[in-house]
Design a binder for these strands. Sequence first.
RNA 1: GCGAGAGUGGCGGAAUGGCAGACGCGCCGGAUUUAGGAUCCGGUGGGCAACCAUGAGGGUUCAAGUCCCUCCUCUCGCACCA
Length: 858
Amino acid sequence: MKYRPQEIERKWRKAWDEAGVDRCPDALSAPKYYCLEMFPYPSGRIHMGHVRVYTIGDLLARFKRMRGYQVLHPIGWDAFGLPAENAAHRHGTHPAKWTWENIAFMREQLRQMGISYDWEREIATCSPDYYRWEQLFFLWMMKDGIAFRKRATLNWCGECQTVLANEQVNRDGTCFIHDQTPVTQKELDQWFLGITRYAEELLEGHRELAGGWPENILEMQRNWIGRSEGAEIRFPLADGDGEITVFTTRPDTLFGATFMSMAPEHPMTMEFARKSGREREVREFVGRVAGQDRAARTGEDQAKEGVFTGGYCVNPVTGNRIPVYAANFVLYEYGTGAVMAVPAHDQRDFEFAKKYGLPIVVVVQPEGEALDPASMPGAHEGPGTLVRSGEFDGMDSEDGKKSITRHLEGKGRGRATVQYRLRDWGVSRQRYWGCPIPVIHCEACGIVPVPEKDLPVVLPEDLPYTRERGNPLASAEGWLRVPCPACGKSARRETDTFDTFVESSWYFLRYIDPKNDRAPLDPEKMRRFGPVDQYVGGVEHACMHLIYARFFHKYLRDKGLAPGNEPFLRLLSQGMVCMQTSECPKHGWRYPEEVDENGACRQCGEKVNVGRSMKMSKSKRNVVEPSELIERYGADTARVFILFAAPPERDLDWSEQGVEGAYRFLGRVYRLVAQRAEAVASASPVWDDSAEVRRIRQATHRTLFKVTGDIEERFHFNTAISAVMEMVNILYLVEDPAWTAPATAGALREAVEILLHMLFPFAPHVGEELWARIGGEGLLCARPWPEADAALVREDQVEVVVQVNGKVRAKVTVGAGAGEEEVRALAMAETRVREHTAGKKIRKTVYVPGKLFSVVAN
RNA sequence: GCGAGAGUGGCGGAAUGGCAGACGCGCCGGAUUUAGGAUCCGGUGGGCAACCAUGAGGGUUCAAGUCCCUCCUCUCGCACCA
């Protein structure tokens, strides 16, 4: 009776498919539970990271179904993106063909894993049925002023011939695809979505998410949004009209502002230079800095550098004339692009002032210290008492922030404001394989939205893939020449496509209504199934995807489509899948199969160095192919190993021996039940009240109680499996005759039935198979989760630990309800307790009911 | 630098402030087998013991892996954001 997962798994997948048990009908017949895993990019093959997320999601989906919920558990494909175009360039395959073939292959892999998706709801974002609605949203956003065009300096990769998001620029300033190519800055007209309008709400929404989302993700989002409170202060120009507005979080240091720093890109920078005749020097500096890529410009230990623009402005409180500099560290995109420089109290300004010999004035004096500008080693950025600040002298610097801001407001020279680090979302990409942005450029009318009735703007299919780089759409003459919808003259389509994060910002809503061809989403259905109850995905999406999706959801809520304020009520961010690396001194990284059993390279026989466990990646060759794993051990083993080896949020160390262990466990369950299947099937559900029956039933119900809690409340799937393992161990110790004895057979049947229910979400195929073997009613997958009998879960006899001075000296067994006096009498009578308290005075005793009795004596 | 998380046997990992090391891997032994493998059963932190052990050191407590303080190491995120 050998466990043959391949046969079992194929058989039950087919049975479930035919019975349609994973479908989620539109009509609700039970409370809904929307369980969602982040959808994959169809890169070609499933990797272990996918196996982990989808296994975790499936466990929850299957469990919740048994718990009586109507579970919506969909899957789809994040199908637009650059890799398809790269593949096209390399192999001459059309991106669409490449993508759809990958989808077909990966769909089959997911099916083999036995993930219980409602495949009727499958979506692919590259399908016009999907992206047409995204184009519609964009038209709405244009009307609402949420989508707008702005000239912006963007990261540009000369190799890709396209803009890159900040996230796509490596730390060293190279392109995330071409890590040899430095990213440069380029000015382009781009489409933006006004996410900053929702900045405060995105922050505020964390209240709703607290508890349901991991704290570290919320923290990362808070940093990303980067709210800071401060003041806008207007500095009049010293010569002529006009003013410079700065943002500062330290209005309390205003009296110490001795010069001004401007972003090189700031329009006033060159204006000052022109007026003062310093155009040449300033232009040289501005040109050099503006052309620098992000990392070179903003790296931490980049030297502070600047140039005097020739202009002066006036400190509004001291009345002093202060010089205006252009400085490399001032960012045009943040705040107002101009900074009041307070060298005594800001390290950057301090370094800058030292370098260019600018005055340093101390205006915040820390307690018990006298700061001297000449000898200060660095800026004092902490709090203190205001000095040299006129009427504000002696005030605490915290109070000074408010007072000086109020003072400026009174004089009309400033006001309290809030700034965010979050920028508006640039969504234009110069790429072919993306959702076309539905606008038309007309020489006469300017930018004209494509009329709704003309949607979707479908990508042209017949593009020759001869161009090595750049955007093929820009040369698709037949496609881009269109009459202007406003004036009818010849015009050009927008050739940019959307950032693929736009597609992933609302796919979870479309799953609820995937086939609607009259509207993007049906509000009534959205209310029925939304929002997502449990989202599962990797931490790498903490800031981009998860913030964009929250923003999009809020916008669609404002349009009356999306339900509630937040799209994902709970988030589980699973850890990475890691494996140790092997490096051959001659051949570099080795795949596991390139190393023999003695730890030597199969190619040269040299001993390989075994490195620390790292995230599985092709480049390090420390990967295990999911399909090979499943072929060899079956999907159930893969699932059990993944869920058992580590709690979901932690990194998981891959171990071949661990996989073997999971396989062995399933074989053990299989043999236990299959060998006794007849006895179990013919047992009646009755039992006597013998100690043996009670022992079996207590083990059963206590395990059930623990497993239920571990899955439902704690998400501790590894301990749930260990509890099931313990129960299996107990059942193995039951003597053979008991399985057929009328007194015990019923209790054992109950035990096996409950065991299989508990096993099911982890290893559904073998669970279902054994359920059939014991003559179980219907399909196990459709059965309700059993309820633990509280009377059996409760202990009737408990062992109380007796401590003397903190050390365990005895154990006494008492009835569960035993009172302190009873326990004390038993405890103090114990020989070991008497030994350790002999000749000492009992100072104190503590009784923790049913657990522990502690004696303090000296 | 700032922020978050982690550090427990040979390994992965368990422990609402209450017997540290559940469960699994590995290892050791036994049964079965011609043999090996597979399977089933048992043992397995260190120490002969008193006892000692949760990164290091302090503290709170009758009681600390868990709470507090200082420090070390690792992982992740942010990083000239005014």
